[in-house]
Structures are given as structure tokens and as C-alpha cells.
Amino acid sequence: MAAAAHPLAGAGRNESIRRAFQVLECLAESPGASIAGVARETGLPRATVTRVLATLADMGAARRDGSGWTIGPSIGALARSIDPSLAEQAGPRLAALAADLGETVMLAVPEGALGARVVAEAVGPRTVGVGSWLGRTMTDPASGFVRMRLAALDRPARQRAVGELQLVAHTRSTVRSRRALLAELDRIAQADHAEVVDQFEQGLAGLAVPLRGNDRIVGLLAVYLPTSRLDAGMRRRALQALQATAQSLTGASETTTSSSSSHTR
């Protein structure tokens, strides 16, 4: 069967739009990239990247984040018009997970260069537990969410990122040295999950696992609970449940995306 002709086969092409998508794809793969970094990754002249980013920023499609650039909110709005959000898909699974573990579980999405914003949660049934973090953006490396994002970087990028961090001693247990943090991030990268105990707040513990799509982190799933309740049995059970839920969410997201794509062809 002959391939269907492109509906606009005879039309010209706009190279400015092509370059804009090159820049957006670079920011999606390397959040927080500098203008020089985007130019290097895309092969575009630095002056061109500067003009493209300025235009994208005017439209809310890109935004400045410290010394780098990230995808802007208007791109998220466009994406939500195509597929259900990860938060919507996660709701029932988070509720089931919180009921199973008896603890509060949260779903976060990448925000900025290394942050994570909590977009969905299910509070555990215990009287003593973790309060709501919904809508909160975590940027501190004492957070399991942020450590998971740092660990996902290749080692040279990880070293550069840690070198620029401000390490705040929230408790006596908080990792204070960059060398110790890098060693911890190496362990997280190897294990593919983060565990934080008394790092951000005394008496607070958490486990976090990544959700991946297209070879990058698209979400982070975590359980937070009082340190006194994180024994070896709970650690093992929670980690298995988190990983299974993350896998089911990633599979559901891929199925939804595939179905949506098939309807557009």
C-alpha cells in the first residue's frame, strides 16, 4: 500500500518554528540549561538561541530559572489539553497505596532545574503522620524528591549541580558536606530510589522512587512517615509498593499517550 501523501506536502516550511522546537526539546531533556548549553546541544548559534528563548518567554513557553532556562507553563497547558494529567491518573492509585501502607503518599513532578512540585497526595489514616504538602515545591537537597532528581543527572552534571547548592543544616543529621552528598547521590543512582531520615525535619522519614518516560524523570512518587515507623519491614514493603505503583502509572501514561496518538493519525 502506498504511503499517504502529507496533507501539506507542497507547502513551505518555517525554520523559525523548527528552531523553537529544537530549543524546547533541549529544555525538556536538560531543565535549567544555560543559553550556551542550549546552543551547544542544538548546534544553533548563541544569538539565535537568545532570540528564540526571548520569544518563547514572551509566550510563556519558556522561563528563566536562576542561571538557566526551563519549559514554561503554557507548554504544560497545551499538554493537558491532549492527555489526562499524571495527577488525575494517579489519584485512585495513591489512595489505594496510602490505605495499604497506612501512611501519606505523594506524587511530584519536576519543577525548574532540580525542584519537584507536589501535584497529588493521599493522606494516611494514622492520627500521627505527615500533613498536606499539596502544591508545595521542594528545592532543598535534604528532600528525597530533589535528591532523586540530582541522582538522575550524569556524574559530571551532578558534581556541578552539587557545587552550586546551598546546603542548609535543618537537623543534626542533615548532610552538610558536598562530598557526603555526592556519595549519597551515587548510592541513590545505583539503587534507583532515595531514602531520607531526619534530613529535612527531625522525626521525618521518606522513600522516593522515579517515574520515567522517554528516558527521563516525569514524576516522583514518595511515602513520608514518622521515622519511628520506618523499620526494615516497612522499608521493604513500602519500596516494593512504590515501585509497583510507579510502574503502573508509567504504563497507564504510555497507554494513554499511545491511544491519543492513534486517534490523531
Rank of each mutant, 00 (worst) to 15 (best):
M1Q: 09
A2S: 13
A3W: 09
A5D: 10
H6N: 11
P7Q: 01
A9E: 14
N14G: 03
N14S: 14
E15Q: 11
R19S: 08
A20S: 12
A20Y: 03
E29A: 15
G32Y: 04
I35A: 10
A36G: 13
G37Y: 06
V38C: 04
R46V: 09
T48M: 05
A57I: 02
M59S: 14
A61H: 11
G66W: 05
S67I: 12
S67E: 15
T70D: 10
I71F: 07
A77H: 13
L78Y: 03
L78V: 12
R80L: 12
R80Y: 02
S81Y: 02
D83Q: 15
S85Q: 04
S85W: 07
G91R: 15
D100S: 13
L101K: 04
G102D: 08
G102F: 08
T104G: 01
M106Y: 14
P110K: 10
G115W: 09
G115L: 06
A116R: 03
V118D: 02
P125R: 06
R126P: 05
V128F: 14
G129Q: 10
G129V: 01
R136N: 02
T137V: 10
T137Y: 00
D140C: 12
D140V: 11
D140G: 03
S143R: 01
S143M: 08
S143H: 04
V162W: 01
G163T: 06
G163P: 02
Q166R: 15
V168K: 06
V168I: 13
A169H: 11
R172P: 12
T174A: 11
V175N: 03
S177H: 15
L181F: 07
L181H: 08
E184W: 01
A189Y: 11
Q190F: 11
Q190P: 00
A194G: 07
E195V: 15
E195H: 06
D198Q: 05
Q199D: 01
E201T: 00
E201P: 02
E201L: 11
Q202G: 11
A208C: 14
A208I: 05
V209E: 00
P210W: 02
N214L: 15
N214Y: 10
R216I: 07
R216G: 03
R216N: 06
G219E: 09
V223E: 00
Y224W: 07
D231T: 08
D231Y: 06
D231S: 07
M234F: 13
R235Q: 09
A238N: 01
Q240F: 07
A241S: 13
L242M: 01
Q243E: 13
A244G: 03
T245I: 04
T245W: 05
S248L: 13
L249A: 06
G251E: 12
E254D: 13
E254H: 12
S258C: 10
